[in-house]
Design a binder for these strands. Structure first.
Length: 206
DNA sequence: TTCCCGATTTACT
DNA sequence: GTAAATCGGGAAA
């Protein structure tokens, strides 16, 4: 029995910023009901760090049916519906009773790229198939049914992928959280430097 | 129960 | 650059 490439639950049960940073380069895999496996390397994430973070759904200890999953132990999926038409995939991190998670914002396509191009109706440019949290969920067929799913199990899991050097990781402010006041500028977004697959271009520091 | 608004994407001016 | 699409969750009443 060969050693599993799937990341263990202990990987997720650490500080959220660390998990967000180290998820870069990892391989997100999704097995469809027809048996086909789609995958991509994670190139962009954002950390949502719970109680004090005004951008986090669990801010201030808010606890509702939807955010319940954020309070669980790390290693499971938190999927929510936004703007009436899109889903976003998050990885719950940290320990029980800490409402923290990492938003997966963009992937570099890996397996079954042609199938994904078809699905996204963007058959020309593979750089734009998975470059956004709403888009990657649509293409990978991720919806509420996978909420609370264990990310070490079929049909959605994360494996070891490419090695990303720490010099190749850049942090920047998060996207579209204009309501979060002093948290808007916090550099909790992590991405692979110069990757053509990220969602929103990073503002250059002058 | 009602009302407001969003961790987005796409199309248009 | 800005706006429209579109609906469930959360807060208020």
């Amino acid at each position: 029995m060969k050693k599993s490439k799937i990341l263990p639950l202990s990987f997720y049960q650490r500080s959220t910023e660390l998990v967000a940073r180290e998820l870069l380069g990892k391989k997100l895999c999704r097995k469809l009901s027809n048996g086909k496996v789609l995958s991509g390397y994670i190139v962009e994430t954002e950390a949502y760090v719970g109680l004090l973070d005004k951008a986090c759904h669990g801010f201030g200890g808010r606890k509702t049916p939807r955010t319940q999953v954020l309070y669980e132990n790390g290693g499971i999926a938190y999927i929510y519906f936004i703007y009436g038409m899109y889903y976003c995939l998050n990885v719950v991190s940290s320990k029980k009773n800490h409402p923290e998670a990492v938003l997966i914002r963009a992937l570099e396509p890996c397996d079954n790229v042609d199938w994904m191009k078809d699905k996204s109706q963007n058959s020309i440019n593979e750089k734009k198939i998975l470059n956004g949290p709403g888009k990657l969920c649509k293409v990978l067929d991720i919806d509420k049914g996978l909420n609370t799913h264990d990310l070490t199990q079929n049909p959605l899991w994360i494996e070891k992928g490419k090695d990303i050097k720490s010099e190749a990781i850049v942090s920047s402010p998060r996207i579209n959280i204009g309501y979060a006041e002093e948290w808007i500028e916090r550099p909790l977004r992590f991405s692979v430097k110069d990757s053509p697959y990220i969602s929103v271009k990073i503002k250059e520091a002058k």
